[in-house]
Design a protein around this nucleic acid. Structure first.
Length: 873
RNA sequence: GCUCGGGUGGCGGAAUGGUAUACGCGAAGGACUUAAAAUCCUUUGAUCGCAAGGUCGUGUGGGUUCGAGUCCCACCCCGAGCACCA
């Protein structure tokens, strides 16, 4: 007998499946009830020149098994694939080889697609999408326009990573360690105008939405921490300087009144944010961030302004690494000549500038309570600042040799003494006239890149409209200040919220989408902080769609993440040229039932996509607020050395090599057999042999019983004990697939195959069922056996999943463990449901086990039906 | 520092509180073969014992329970993520 010819089986069925179009979903599915449908989605790949990685194969095999399983169980399964093809690698390749990224992408996509098909993945290629396809990015641009029109996109100066050698802006990932990933030049910080998306407007909703999702807890926690919601209060500390100490002493009682007399001073108070108003009696100094406006406002009152300015400059140039190394060794400078008043105690406290206070969080200023905050403690110890303890564990004893961050009872806190600190928060907040406030760590999303290979941002800048909008703004402000009239005739109402928010920026008309990326001569960034698009004069210069005057296009492009924010929607309605998606179709497949991909996207792609989806939900374009109901992260596949695979380590496993040597089925099954899907696990080429042997044994088993020369094995009876084990195995395989426990499902298949090998005759019913159960894991060999050996007409994929029937086996034998005083001494077979007394009798009569009774009196017997008996003496 | 995961044979890993080490790899021995590969069979946690059998054993130390890899407490180690967020 010849062993299984993987290569020819793969060739044959790939062609046949394509011809039969068995992977294509029925169009009627898109009008059918949601409960009849399943949406099984992979994170689509970036089609790199390297080709498919074993990590891709792992996640894609898992989703393919699930897709095939659900199809066999009668669901309409949407299982699509596409390409996330905008981004740096293609652009860098273009710069180096002077080849248009489009050509590179095309080549890489073709290669990826070939590899995916070689693995037998059941993708419906008729729904393939590509983020760089104008018919696709038309809608990416369209969503951006909706965000813009709703005032959720705005322009702002932000600090970016800049490589002076490559003359380009770098992402944080490209600037890791403070050096350019491409040329190793030291990265600088630059202020640059960027488009921002107001993801912070959705901060609360993005936290709340997590509750309803079946996601790994760690991803939920990561998102929650990333958004970082804190409830606290803002509290004003008034400022005094020697010049007007009298005035401030006077106004301490009613500091809400506006100070008109002090023209030279802008700041009269510092507003701080704290989550711990209960500790305010222990606030012994204030700290402001280097960027805080009080420093320039009170320039003339700050005696050591030169020193302060020097410190501010130095902190701004600090790299992330320098900042982190200072966590334990804090730096700062006192603002001499000015003081703040602690509103709780009325006492004067000093004001410091230090870069451990972040400018973009809260108000950029804090009250320091060194007794009860580690960071403040470190700072106070270094600069010898006063420390006052206001919380004691029990209201009497004070731990004062180190910071005390636990809860307890208030002391040295005036009329609040004796209260539990947490409970006193609301009353103390009121007492110091604080305002309750919620803060988030999440910051708005920087949405522009000074790059060529991305979606053009569909906006133009028009000087004429800028003037109009600014005039309109002045007018409406005046109106607002005078009297708000209900019938206010807003003459410039034809400007959208976004256009008013960003004077001069005008949305291009939706009928002009897609705004296609023009061809350029050089992809090299210009060095003038703008993208290569800025050099194409006839593309940049346009007529303003609003007023018809001369205008210029935005030349920045969207970031890599934009296209992947909504691709899962487009698969449902990929050819719709009128709408982004038909909501009726959307309703029958969203939200995604199962989304499989790497954990590295926990806070970027998955958060951005939820943000956009939530926005589309608010715009009533989709009917569900969350896009991905169940998320599973496949674990990393490590090299044979247990280290992360990388070219430099030389430990990268290549899927093509395995396919050539052992076949696609072997690769698929091996990757599923390595361990739990979500665990990281090392690659082991020896382990592949085990799977290869298993599949060959299956092949020989069917050859032996069913090839044309052998006698018919049909209509043979098997004993009920076998029947029972067979059904138990099917049950285990079914449940394991449902729970994505593919490693144990494969174990069950292996055990079952041994049982089948032991049979003298092989009933066709069992032969059929076993192959169907194997088919989601190993589709090629299964198809060969199913159609060529067992002579079935239709594909395994179109056949019914083998259901298990536990009733079929009437007599069930169970193994009961026998314990004496909790120690297992033997195992005996019984009929299922056997009574305790009968078991006890059998044990007493047993040659071996019976001896344990001699000289002992039974005190107690614990009996768990069908499982265990424990006899205590 | 904080937040999650996780520590089980030589290795990857199985175990609704109920026979710990399923399944696979590796190793050893054997069969087939002139020989090798492939394939098949047997053995394979440690330890004592000729054997029957005993003792120990899931990172460490305690606890709950008739019974703990699994539950509780404390600690040690490894991995991942976040990192001065007031």
């Amino acid at each position: 007998m010849k062993s299984f010819d993987f290569a020819s089986s793969e060739r044959k069925w790939k062609k046949q499946w394509e011809k039969e179009k068995i992977f294509e979903i029925k169009t009627s599915s898109f009008s059918s009830n949601r409960s009849k449908n399943k949406y099984v989605l992979d994170m689509f790949p970036y089609p790199s020149g390297e080709g498919l990685h074993v990590g891709h194969v792992e996640g894609y095999t898992a989703s393919d098994i699930v897709s095939r399983f659900y199809r066999m169980r009668g669901y309409n399964v949407l299982h699509p694939m596409g390409w996330d093809a905008f981004g740096l690698p293609a652009e860098n390749y273009a710069i180096k080889h002077k080849i248009h990224p489009e050509i590179v992408v095309k080549k890489n996509v073709a290669n990826f697609k070939k590899q995916l098909k070689n693995l037998g993945f059941s993708y419906d290629w008729s729904r393939e999408i590509n983020t760089t396809d104008p018919d696709y990015y038309k809608w990416t641009q369209w969503i951006f326009l909706q965000l813009f029109k709703d005032g959720l996109a705005y322009e702002k100066e932000v600090s970016v990573n800049w490589c002076p050698s490559c003359k380009t802006v770098l992402s944080d990932e490209e600037a890791e360690g403070g050096v350019c990933a491409r040329c190793s030049t030291k990265v600088q910080r630059r202020e640059l105008k960027q488009w921002m998306l107001k993801i912070t407007a959705y901060a609360d909703k993005l936290i709340e939405g997590l509750d309803s999702l079946n996601w790994p807890q760690r991803v939920k926690t990561m998102q929650k921490n990333w958004i970082g919601k804190s409830e606290g209060a803002t509290i004003r500390f008034s400022i005094i300087s020697p010049i007007d100490a009298d005035f401030n002493a006077d106004k301490r009682g009613n500091d809400t009144k506006k100070n008109q007399s002090s023209g030279s001073r802008e700041s009269e108070f510092v507003e701080i944010f704290t989550t711990r108003p209960d500790t305010i009696f222990g606030a012994t100094y204030l700290v402001v961030a280097p960027e805080h406006k009080i420093i320039s406002d009170l320039k003339s009152s700050i005696k050591n302004f030169d020193e302060v300015q020097k410190y501010v400059k130095k902190s701004k140039n600090k790299s992330d690494q320098e900042r982190i190394s200072e966590i334990k060794n804090k730096t700062g400078v006192e603002l001499k000549g000015i003081k703040a008043i602690n509103p709780a105690t009325g006492k004067e406290i000093s004001i410091w500038v230090a870069d451990y206070v972040l400018p973009y969080y809260g108000t950029g200023a804090i009250m320091a309570v060194p007794a009860h905050d580690q960071r403040d403690w470190d700072f106070a110890k270094k600069f010898n600042l006063p420390i006052i303890f206001v919380i004691s564990p029990d209201g009497k004893n004070v731990i004062d040799d180190k910071v005390y961050e636990e809860d307890g009872v208030l002391i040295s806190s005036g009329k609040f003494n004796g209260q539990k600190n947490r409970e006193a928060i609301p009353t103390i907040t009121d007492f110091v006239k604080g305002k309750k406030e919620i803060q988030f760590k999440l910051r708005d999303w920087i949405f522009s890149r000074q790059r060529y290979w991305g979606e053009p941002i569909p906006l133009v800048f028009c000087e004429h409209c800028a003037a109009q909008v600014n005039a309109y703004k002045v007018r409406t402000n005046m109106e607002d200040n005078q009297r708000k009239s209900a019938s206010n005739p807003r003459k410039s109402a034809e400007f959208s919220k976004g256009e008013i928010l960003n004077p001069g920026w005008i949305a291009i008309e939706e009928k002009d989408l897609p705004l296609k990326l023009p061809k350029v001569k050089s992809y090299q960034p210009t060095g003038s902080l703008s993208s290569p698009l800025a050099g194409i004069k006839n593309w940049v210069n346009v007529k303003c769609p609003h007023c018809g005057n001369a205008a210029k296009r935005e030349t920045n492009t969207m970031p890599q993440w934009a296209g992947s924010c909504w691709y899962y929607l487009r698969y449902i309605d990929p050819k719709n040229s009128q709408k982004i998606i038909d909501i009726k179709k959307e309703k029958s497949f969203m939200p995604v039932d199962l989304y499989i991909g790497g954990v590295e996207h926990a806070v970027l792609h998955l958060l951005y996509a939820r943000f956009w989806h939530r926005f589309l939900f608010d715009k009533k374009i989709v009917k569900d607020p969350e896009p991905f109901f169940r998320l599973v992260n496949q674990g990393l596949i490590l090299g044979t050395d247990g280290e992360k695979m990388s070219k430099s380590r030389g430990n990268v496993a290549n899927p093509d090599d395995v396919i050539n040597e052992f076949g696609a089925d072997t690769l698929r099954m091996y990757e599923m057999f390595m361990g739990p899907l979500e665990d990281s696990k090392p690659w082991n080429t020896k382990g592949i042999l085990g799977i290869s042997r298993f599949l060959n044994r299956v092949w020989f088993l069917y050859q032996k019983h069913f090839n044309s020369k052998s006698k018919k094995s049909d209509s043979q009876k098997v004993n009920s004990d076998f029947e029972n084990r067979f059904n138990q195995s099917l049950k285990k395989i079914t449940e394991d697939i449902e729970n994505l426990r593919f490693n144990t499902a494969i174990s069950a298949l292996m055990i079952l195959s041994k049982e089948l090998e032991a049979l003298d005759s092989f009933p066709k019913e069992h032969a059929q069922k076993f192959i169907l159960a194997l088919s989601p894991f190993a589709p090629f060999i299964s198809e060969s056996i199913w159609r060529d050996v067992l002579k079935n007409k239709k594909s395994t994929l179109l056949s019914k999943w083998p259901e298990y029937d536990l009733k079929k086996s009437s007599v069930k034998i169970v193994k009961i463990a026998v314990q004496f005083n909790g120690k297992t001494r033997g195992v005996m077979d019984f009929k299922s449901g056997v009574a305790k007394e009968e078991v006890l009798k059998s044990i007493k009569n047993n040659d071996k086990l019976g001896n344990y009774f001699s000289g002992n009196e039974i005190q107690r017997v614990i009996f768990v039906p069908d499982r265990i008996i424990n006899i205590l003496f």
